[in-house]
């Protein structure tokens, strides 16, 4: 088989992949310390053209542009922490809070041209929020992290990220006792996500991983919108499943849960 890269080019690519994995791992420790502002400034894109197209997605859509991302990820979070302090009487933010989102199972595809990369990870995560009565709401959160990376002048940076939740449930509680269908209106993660720039139900865990989003990154030569983990790369599945017209409405009332 003809070798495409010289030894030096291949070794540089090996280090590119390693550095991208390290970038995502560093993010885990930033999250643990709730250093969201630092995360955006240290780990995310800073070139103006990339900042404009950066995106942060969850199951319900995408924030687009670093300003919008900061508004959701940093500013709204800070407001929630301030409200929590009012409720609990804590003297500082994050008393009794815990954020653990260890990323595992990295699958990284470096573009043939070496300018961008795509990756997928899984997290068996947990978040704990103090309630102010001496207890806390401790939750398991299972989620996939998909991300696009771009190489800027000072190294690899996060460009687009999607965190697709599979489930969240309280620690010590029997998950099977939750209602079968998630009530999005009362879902705490959805409530936290607010109103994104682009609203779309990107991953509905009702059907497990049937919807195939976020998709598994394939080898690619150069980046283009159709393979982006930004909103431009999300193609809504024509089947909804939870909407009337695909059977559920017909059976309404026949199953109680």
């Amino acid at each position: 088989m003809e070798q495409r890269y010289t030894d030096k080019e291949l070794m540089a690519r090996v280090w590119d992949v390693e550095n991208i994995k390290t970038l995502i791992h560093k993010r885990v420790y930033y999250i643990a310390d709730d250093r969201r502002e630092d995360e955006l400034s240290d780990l995310w894109v800073s070139a103006p053209e990339n900042m404009a197209t950066a995106s942060f997605g969850r199951n319900w859509g995408f924030y687009v542009g670093m300003d919008a991302i900061r508004g959701y990820y940093v500013d709204a979070h800070a407001k929630r922490l301030a409200q929590q302090m009012e409720r609990t009487g804590a003297a500082e933010p994050n008393v009794g809070n815990l954020y653990a989102h260890p990323a595992s199972t990295g699958l990284v595809r470096l573009a043939g041209d070496g300018l961008t990369a795509k990756g997928l990870w899984y997290c068996i995560a947990q978040e704990t929020t103090a309630l102010g009565d001496g207890t806390a709401d401790a939750r398991w959160m299972l989620e996939r992290i998909a991300a696009d990376f771009v190489k800027e002048s000072d190294g690899w940076k996060i460009w687009h990220m999607v965190i697709a939740a599979d489930l969240n449930c309280e620690a010590g509680e029997n998950y099977s006792k939750q209602p079968v269908y998630v009530d999005w209106d009362s879902d705490p993660v959805k409530a936290e996500f607010g109103t994104p720039t682009v609203a779309a139900l990107t991953h509905d865990p009702t059907f497990n991983w049937w919807d195939g989003y976020p998709f598994i990154p394939e080898p690619y030569e150069t980046f283009h919108d159709s393979i982006s983990y930004g909103p431009e790369g999300f193609v809504p599945n024509p089947l909804k499943g939870l909407s009337a017209g695909e059977g559920r409405g017909y059976m309404a009332g026949r199953h109680a849960r």
Partner: peptide, 14 residues
């Protein structure tokens, strides 16, 4: 160790 009254303790330094 974590408790609901523990102030945030930074992770070991990166």
């Amino acid at each position: 160790y974590y408790s609901p009254g523990r102030p945030m303790v930074p992770a070991p330094r990166i």
